[in-house]
């Protein structure tokens, strides 16, 4: 059943605000372009246009209903897993094993959709973890066995298990009727993105002391701490509005998202640095690959989910 008219009011306002921000950014870009027509702003234009597409797809899917939202994230997991296994080398002999790894996606998202928490939480860390090496045995190729078993399972954990926590948020009982089941999901997305942006802005404005120069030369203590404080504060204001967390618990949620977002970002950066590539793919014009976009989310989604689940359920 379409539920466009029945969107919970808090979530509806937040979605309007997000679209408002996009409208303003688009106008600013057009004004700047009009004032300075010779300056090349292709990169910015592509970036903003891609934001429009991503927001449109996300909002349409989660507004329509829980089912479409869950299907969307299953597709996102598929694209992320494909991207990961395409840039990280595996063996030719692993083709069929990888085909099985892809099959874990519909199963994992099915557990999320029926809200079977116990199965959802062990399916990939236990059953998939044990099954994939078994399937690898059948190929009979032992050279590179450890490498492939490690790569494939890590890929499935990052892109399927971790990201599927976003979908499970939609299947949780709705405890703040004004925000609805999509409230916590919007909260997670907004805070993760706010963290990326505010760490960048603080780092750009005041950054001096590098945290991990070997992996991300642009990451500074000033950016990290500035982002952390900003996100923690915004989170305590926004959490009671979009979720059933009170402001104190919202504060802690913000802290977790800021720390996790930073780590997720750097982990994916390390993968790319190891492979000596800048972007993980070319799926999203102006952004790179889907993993470039969701790097922080691979960490924030499961950590926020478990905090939220522990506190409220």
């Amino acid at each position: 059943m379409p539920e466009f008219s029945l969107l919970p009011v808090h979530s509806f306002y937040v979605m309007c605000a997000v679209i408002g921000v996009l409208v303003v950014s688009t106008i600013i870009r057009l004004v700047r372009k009009a004032r300075n027509p010779d300056k090349d702003d292709t990169e910015l234009r592509l970036r903003i246009n891609s934001w429009w597409w991503m927001i449109a797809i996300l909002f349409a899917a989660i507004s329509y209903g829980t089912g479409t939202g869950i299907v969307l994230f299953a597709v996102v997991s598929f694209l992320a897993l494909k991207e990961f296994l395409s840039i990280v080398p595996t063996r030719f002999a692993d083709r069929r094993v990888i085909a099985w790894a892809y099959l874990s996606i519909p199963v994992q998202y099915y557990w999320a959709s029926i809200g079977w928490y116990g199965m959802f939480i062990i399916f990939i860390p236990v059953y998939t973890f044990l099954f994939l090496p078994l399937r690898m045995l059948l190929t009979g190729e032992t050279r590179g066995f450890i490498h492939s078993a490690g790569v494939i399972h890590w890929a499935v954990m990052l892109t399927v298990f971790n990201l599927s926590h976003i979908a499970y948020l939609l299947a949780l009982p709705d405890k703040n009727p004004l925000a609805g089941a999509i409230g916590p999901l919007l909260f997670l997305f907004l805070m993760t993105q706010a963290n990326d942006v505010s760490q960048y802005v603080w780092g750009k404005s005041f950054g001096k002391h590098k945290i991990i120069p070997k992996i991300s030369p642009n990451k500074t203590w000033e950016g990290f701490l500035g982002g952390l404080v900003t996100v923690t504060l915004i989170s305590s204001l926004l959490a009671p509005y979009l979720t059933s967390l009170n402001w104190q618990r919202g504060l802690l949620a913000g802290l977790i998202i800021a720390l996790a977002g930073f780590v997720g970002d750097v982990v994916i950066s390390s993968v790319k640095r190891d492979l000596q590539i800048k972007d993980s793919g070319h799926l999203i014009p102006g952004h790179g690959g889907i993993l470039d976009r969701l790097d922080s989310m691979t960490y924030t989604a499961p950590l926020f989910f478990h905090y939220f689940y522990y506190m409220e359920f």
């Binding site: 598929f78 494909k82 395409s86 840039i87 083709r95 069929r96 990888i98 085909a99 892809y102 793919g281």
Partner: peptide
Amino acid sequence: EALIVPYC
């Protein structure tokens, strides 16, 4: 082979 395995 007949099985298509997704890959970028």
